[in-house]
């Protein structure tokens, strides 16, 4: 049986994404969880490459691996005795947790089954950067600007929270 190499690579990448996501969720060591995100973020970037979205793939690595992952690692490493804290929520037991999980799984399965999955067309590996730029500054200018304002607000909020009040 002839398996095309790109299908093989796709499943390999999917395995890396799902596998490291499982480590993120199930690992007892929170630092291991944080480092496993590297596999998830990198794998998602590879999936973008499969979809022919070169710009998004590079930005995914740049922002998520270079920025967000490092921030998460900082937060985990700089939190005092983070591994000693009991993470399990005592007030809500395992049974309500399982029930909530089951309901959520049901919703997800229902949504996936209900979606009319279009068969992936021949992916065109063409430059997308200029098209994305034109769309951002043309058709989607308002959402783009709103996202920028939201980020600015988040920045100002972070500064307000972290700065020390200087008393005279």
């Amino acid at each position: 049986m002839e398996i095309p190499i790109n299908v093989l690579v796709f499943y390999l990448v999917a395995l890396v994404v799902v596998g490291s996501a499982c480590i993120v969720a199930f690992s007892r060591n929170i630092v291991h969880s944080a480092f496993s995100l590297l596999g998830t973020f990198g794998g998602v970037a590879a999936l973008y490459v499969f979809l022919g979205a070169d710009f998004v793939a590079a930005v995914q690595v740049l922002i998520y691996v270079g920025g967000i992952l490092v921030l998460i690692l900082f937060a985990v490493m700089l939190t005092h005795r983070i591994s000693d804290i009991q993470i399990t929520n005592r007030t809500v037991g395992r049974i309500p947790g399982l029930a909530a999980g089951a309901v959520f799984l049901g919703i997800l399965v229902y949504a996936i089954a209900g979606t009319d999955w279009a068969k992936a067309k021949e992916v065109a590996f063409e430059p997308t950067t200029a098209v994305i730029g034109n769309l951002f500054l043309g058709d989607y200018l308002l959402p783009f600007q709103i996202a920028a304002v939201v980020l600015l607000v988040a920045l100002i909020g972070a500064i307000t929270l972290s700065r020390k009040e200087i008393k005279e």
Binding site: L38, D54, A58, V61, V65, G66
Partner: peptide, 17 residues
């Protein structure tokens, strides 16, 4: 790559991790 310099900035950020 048509995103060459962006790729370069992205891949070198792996070293931080």
């Amino acid at each position: 790559l048509n995103i060459g310099i962006l790729y370069l900035l992205a891949i070198t950020s792996l070293a931080v991790v």
